[in-house]
Amino acid sequence: MGVLDGKVAIVTGSARGIGRATAQLLLEHGARVVINDLDGDLAQQTADDLGGESTVFAGDLTQDGTPDALVAHAIDTWGQLDILVNNAGYTLDAPIHKMSDDWWSRMLDIHLTVPFRTIRAAAPHLREPAKREREEGREVFRKIVNVSSISGTLGNAGQANYSAGKAGVVGLTRTLAKEWGQFKVNVNAVAFGWIETRLTASKDETNVTEIGGERVQLGIPDGMRELAPMLVPLGRPGTPEEAAGGIFYLCSPWSNYVHGQTLHVTGGQMGGMTG
C-alpha cells in the first residue's frame, strides 16, 4: 500500500531534473502521474524509465489553451485530479539594465502565468468534489505545490526577471491558500536553493535548450559553481532527489495541516540582503 494510492497527479516539467525526481517519488508511493514536458520524446522516455502508472502530455504551457489541455488530459485519462505540482521553468539571466522586454515577459509567463492558468484550469476538479465531500461530512485533502526559489524570496543579481516570477509564485500561493482552504486544498510553495540541475550546471556550449525555436543558454559559470562549499552550510548543492523530497512531503498526508507556507529546501543557504 502506498500513501498516495488512488491519487492522480500532474507534474509540469517532469521529463528531467527535479520534476522527474518528483514524478518518480509520487509513482513509487502509488500515485498515477501525468508526465509533462516540451520534449514529447523525452517525456515518453521518462515515463517508460520510471514505470508505474503514468501518461504523457507534451506541449508548451506558455501557449494559450495548453494548461487547459493538460488538465483535460488528466481528467480524460483518470477522471480526477488530486495533486498539482507547478515545476516547469528555465532561466534567462542578464543584469536589469541589459534585459530585454522579451526576456522579462518570458520569465513571468513560464514561472507565474503558467501556474496561474494551470491552477485555474484545475479549479473545477479540485473544488467541486470538495463541496460534495463537505456535505457528506468528509475531509479529503488535495494538494497544490508551486515551485519557487530563494532567488524569489531573497533576490539574486542577474535574475530580476526570474526572481520577480518566483516571488510572484509565493504571493499566488498565499492568496490561493486563503481562497481554497475551505475546500481542503493545501496550497504551498517550495523555494529551492542550489540544486544540481541543468540550470546550475556548467555554462558551456553543451548546456543549451530550445524554447520557441530559439537556443537558450543554461547554467552558471564554473567560478560561481566553485563557491558552493562556502555558500551552502551543508557544503554542497542538493540533488534533484533531495529537492523532490520537499515537494513529496507537501503532496503527502503528513502535510494536511500545512497551508499557505513556503518551504525552503536549501541545505541551509539563506544568503542575501535580509536586513
Rank of each mutant, 00 (worst) to 15 (best):
M1D: 05
V3Q: 11
G6S: 02
K7S: 07
V8Q: 03
V8R: 00
I10N: 04
S14Q: 08
G17Y: 02
I18T: 09
E28N: 09
E28P: 00
G30P: 05
N36M: 06
N36Q: 11
L38A: 08
D41T: 14
L42Q: 13
L42R: 15
T46N: 00
D48S: 14
L50W: 07
E53Y: 00
D60V: 03
Q63R: 15
D64F: 02
D64Y: 06
T66M: 15
P67A: 14
L70E: 05
V71I: 13
V71K: 00
V71D: 05
A74W: 08
D76E: 15
W78T: 10
L81W: 07
N86G: 02
A88E: 05
G89A: 03
A94K: 14
A94P: 09
P95T: 07
K98H: 13
D102H: 13
W103C: 00
L108N: 05
V114P: 11
F116D: 00
I119A: 12
A121N: 00
A123I: 12
A123W: 13
R134S: 14
E136I: 00
G137C: 05
E139C: 09
R142E: 05
K143C: 05
S148H: 01
S149T: 10
T153E: 02
L154H: 15
L154K: 13
A157V: 14
G158K: 13
A160L: 12
N161T: 05
S163A: 15
S163Y: 10
G165Y: 10
G181V: 02
Q182K: 14
Q182F: 03
F183I: 07
K184F: 14
V187I: 15
G193V: 12
T197W: 10
L199D: 03
T200E: 01
D204S: 09
E205M: 02
T206Y: 00
E210H: 06
I211Q: 06
Q217F: 04
Q217G: 06
Q217R: 08
G219C: 06
D222L: 08
M224N: 09
R225Q: 10
E241P: 01
E241F: 01
G246M: 11
F248E: 03
Y249T: 09
P253V: 06
S255F: 09
S255N: 02
N256W: 09
L263D: 09
G268F: 04
G271I: 12
G272E: 08
T274M: 13
